[in-house]
Nucleic acid binder design. Sequence first.
DNA 1: CGGACTTCGTGAAATCATGCACGAAGTAAT
DNA 2: ATTACTTCGTGCATGATTTCACGAAGTCCG
Lengths: 229, 229
Amino acid sequence: MSESPRRRIPEAALGRLPIYLRILVELGHENVAQASSEQLAELAGVNAAKVRKDLSYLGTYGTRGVGYEVQFLTVQIQRELGLNQAWPVVIVGAGNLGQAMANFTGIAERGFHIVGVVDKDESKIGTQVGGVSVTHVDSLTQLVQLHKVSIGIIATPAAHAQDAADSLVRAGIGSIMNFAPTILSVPRDVHVRKVDLALELQILSYYEDCRNGNLREVPTDGRIDPVSA
Amino acid sequence: MSESPRRRIPEAALGRLPIYLRILVELGHENVAQASSEQLAELAGVNAAKVRKDLSYLGTYGTRGVGYEVQFLTVQIQRELGLNQAWPVVIVGAGNLGQAMANFTGIAERGFHIVGVVDKDESKIGTQVGGVSVTHVDSLTQLVQLHKVSIGIIATPAAHAQDAADSLVRAGIGSIMNFAPTILSVPRDVHVRKVDLALELQILSYYEDCRNGNLREVPTDGRIDPVSA
DNA sequence: CGGACTTCGTGAAATCATGCACGAAGTAAT
DNA sequence: ATTACTTCGTGCATGATTTCACGAAGTCCG
């Protein structure tokens, strides 16, 4: 595995890399030079073997008997995630969520740059949101091409999400983060990640309902009976 | 219609039930009486066999040769998810995200009720957010007990998220939705779901980087070579 | 009624993810 | 150099999830 280990990283592992990255950046700020998989696992709330396996997809960057170099590993993960550039991002929908995303410091801190917020509602156009002024959705293509944007965020009501997606795709975007509770249909080569806030609450509702004695055999003990119908 | 054969639903399937539910509700609004697993799969963007298996965890509610009754199945999923009651919810943090969540209609539409928003910043206290006025975080316990709240949302900066979690746990909450990019430490019986917005963007960044032909060589010596296409 | 057709429910195979356990490779100290 | 100790990398077993494929159970129609 010396030359070109550009194997694809499994989804599950990929989803944890940003977590390790955040932890490493924090450790760096505290001037910690090295960290073992054990320590990282502790901070990430996972198993140490998992940390090692996840990191092994990037290459063999650890030192046995010592651990990982914080600075070095930070850079490797950033590079792997494509974070050695500032990605320009557009937001479609200047409602509460769109505004929240535009103002979200965590996004800017991690190297994403909101270059535009568009909406179809005339009353919102011209208002300042997160340092940019809202423009009409018709300006999307222009915006995308001008700033070479490849990531779009859909923060519209569900009813307009597919329209928003179509506009983004037409404008030439390659990846979409979708907050609307809708299954978008997009060309195969466009990547969509959905974030469904109500869905998350509904899952919590399930667990709360379980806890409240509405019995469903919770997973605390391990063994499950094959109950017949 | 045997007595509830409530075996535990696998996480993966549980995560899709809210999607089926949304689709069924929509179909109901369009006065569609029945739907096959094929149709549901199409609308949910998944495989038909998966739909059937997922639904089979609830019981055998389909009719062979016909499909599923939309109204009936809707109710069954709601019941399974514990959505036959309106869950009161508190939000900790009245920043952009907290406000967006408080105002988010999708949440109210699905039977969740924001009964309070708290913050530690004096300047925010008293302001109206999503129909309630922001109170001090010290009033959390009172709020939780008064409204019998069991679900809390953390929308604070990362630095205060653990404090927020501690307060919620002390107040007696059982489930937490955490927007802060932090691993919370909570008692074992408290359920946490994290929603990490920057993380999602970082994953999109990875795929965009792949798409851009950035076939990253992984040098074992640590040299970083910014390969451009 | 019977045969053609539809669609569910589910065992079994295939795929993916996790966690253990151990050898390999390093450090530290004598 | 040797011994003791640490910690990585990974093969392998186990578990979870997805997908396939097919029998079972229903509808429809002549």
